[in-house]
Amino acid sequence: MTVTETHGGGTPEPENAAPAARRAWWRSLLADRAAAPAMLLLMAIVLAALFAPLIAPHDPNANSRAIMQPPVWSERGTAEYLLGTDSQGRDILSRALYGTRLTLLIGLVAIGIGGVIGSTLGLLSAMYRRIDPWIMRINDMMLSFPAILLGLALVAVAGPGVLPVIVALGIASIPDCARIARSIGIGVMGQEYIEAGRAVGLSDWAIFRRYLLRNSISSIMIFLSLRFGQIILIGAALSFLGLGARPPTSELGMMAAQGRDTLMFAPHIATIPSVVIFVIVLCANITGDALRDVLDPRLQT
């Protein structure tokens, strides 16, 4: 062959040289002053929730005679119950650990359901413009049901419990996710490499999987990570309304609801789970924002 001059300049690099760009996003994420602590905190919360059975000092459902003990830092607090006890004498720290576990689980499963179904619909819409109006009109209809209302309706049919709440939250996040996935997908479908893939002779399925999905997934994940905070909030709200987990199971929203009656003389019972919810949602949002800044190529110049 006559054309063998190399283009690229410089000396050949060793085969295992790690691509610079892939390390870079981790670095810039850790360099982000808001994101790094938020991610660490979120990670700590997730670990604590995961290992709740090992960490929790008490059985979360065991009553004791120490009723409405204040947390350790107040005057009458004891080291026995670090975050105090509720109106039935249950250890709030243990309940919060188990509650976080359930709250995170509800959020994750719901966002999983909504994310998978929603982005599949959205990406199909982007790929097959013929069915796009139909999917999107159905989507608009779903969008007009608030998640809380959907949850109420489902619970009315299936009875209160964790599962109906998860299903309701999952369904409620489908339309938003479908919209985002569609707009991301339309951007990807407009790229010339899609046409290049067709010119090579790829099937629709291969184009969907290797071209459309691979190029949309990171943007969709960023959206989902932002959405995760909202889902947890709505889930907690549903539990607060008495639609979610059934007593004595602990769930953060339900714990807040139970503390409502004693808010005047034992405010910590309602406040502590609320603060945990607040921190989780805040960290999830900050992390999602930072991920978007770092990963979303459309925001880079």
Binding site: E192, Y193, A196, A199, G201, P297
Partner: peptide, 21 residues
């Protein structure tokens, strides 16, 4: 799809015509 083997295309935009992933 089978015939695509025999006829190919080179695109104008070298930045957009390759799958970035």
């Amino acid at each position: 799809r089978e015939a695509r083997r025999h006829m190919q295309i080179i695109f104008q935009d070298p930045f957009g015509s390759l799958n970035p992933r």
